[in-house]
Every structure is written in C-alpha cells, then in structure tokens.
C-alpha cells in the first residue's frame, strides 16, 4: 500500500508522543479501540483555566495511518479551545492525510479519541465543581 508523504512524515517523526499525568484534574484522557481490531489510541489533553488546550499527547498501537491520524490530532489540539476541538471531524483528518478508503476508520478513531479525552476532562471538571459547591 502506498502511503501519502504526510502519513510517512507523521509516522517517522510523530509529534507529541508521550503521556500526561492522568490524575491531574486538568488532564482529560481518551482511550479508544481494541487490540483485536489492530488499533488502540490513547489521547490526552491538558486544559488551561481559559478553556484552551495547553498540551496534547498521544500513544497509538496501530498501523501507520492510525499513528499519523493521532499525531496530527495532537498538533491540531494544541492551542485550540476545548469547544473548537470538539468540532474536529474525521473527514478533515482524511483530507489532510489523503487517507485511502480502507484507512478511514483510523481517522474515525482519532475523532473518537478527541471526544473521549474532552468528555473525561469535562467529567472531572463537573465533579470538581460539584465538590466545591457542596463545600460552600
């Protein structure tokens, strides 16, 4: 299978590989996929007080396109607002990386990972607000 130059670039020089502290209240973690399907993505965001994503990291088990999709996603996430991040669509990833039809599921997984990370962060925040509310 021929990979696009952008997929190859992300695969060979993945951006933002690594992990953030998942217990940090400002960090949202999304883990999607399954080993039996051949891909698992872990995507993490760290959100500042102004609702902007100050850092994003990923780790991916999967094919080159899955690695590239998650690497690209972290690039797009950094510096953007949580609300804007929630609007990222898999089709934008497909377009940017020129993914062939058989690799579209990689982009879907990346979108799911973003949404899962945001959801995790929102739940943490809601829990914290409830806690603070209960105390006052």
């Amino acid at each position: 299978m021929a990979y696009s130059d952008k997929v190859l670039d992300h695969y060979q020089n993945p951006r933002n590989v690594g992990s953030l502290d998942k217990n940090d209240p400002n960090v949202g973690t999304g883990v999607v996929g399954a080993p039996e399907c051949g891909d698992v993505m872990k995507l993490q965001i760290k959100v500042g007080d102004d609702g902007r994503i100050v850092d994003a990291k990923f780790k991916t088990y999967g094919c080159g396109s899955a690695i590239a999709s998650s690497s690209l996603a972290t690039e797009w996430l950094k510096g953007t607002s949580v609300d804007a991040a929630a609007q990222i669509k898999n089709t934008q990833i497909v377009e940017e990386l020129s993914l062939p039809p058989v690799k579209i599921h990689c982009s879907v997984l990346a979108e799911d990972a973003i949404k899962a990370a945001i959801e995790d962060w929102r739940q943490k925040r809601a829990a914290r607000t409830a806690e603070t509310g209960a105390r006052s």
Binding site: P14, V17, S19, V31, P35, V40, M41, K42, K59, T60, Y61, I67
Partner: peptide, 8 residues
C-alpha cells in the same frame, strides 16, 4: 513500543 499504549 515507546509509542504504544499497550506497552505502557
């Protein structure tokens, strides 16, 4: 493996 969530 350094990139793999499973390995981690």
């Amino acid at each position: 493996r350094e990139m793999s969530p499973l390995w981690e």
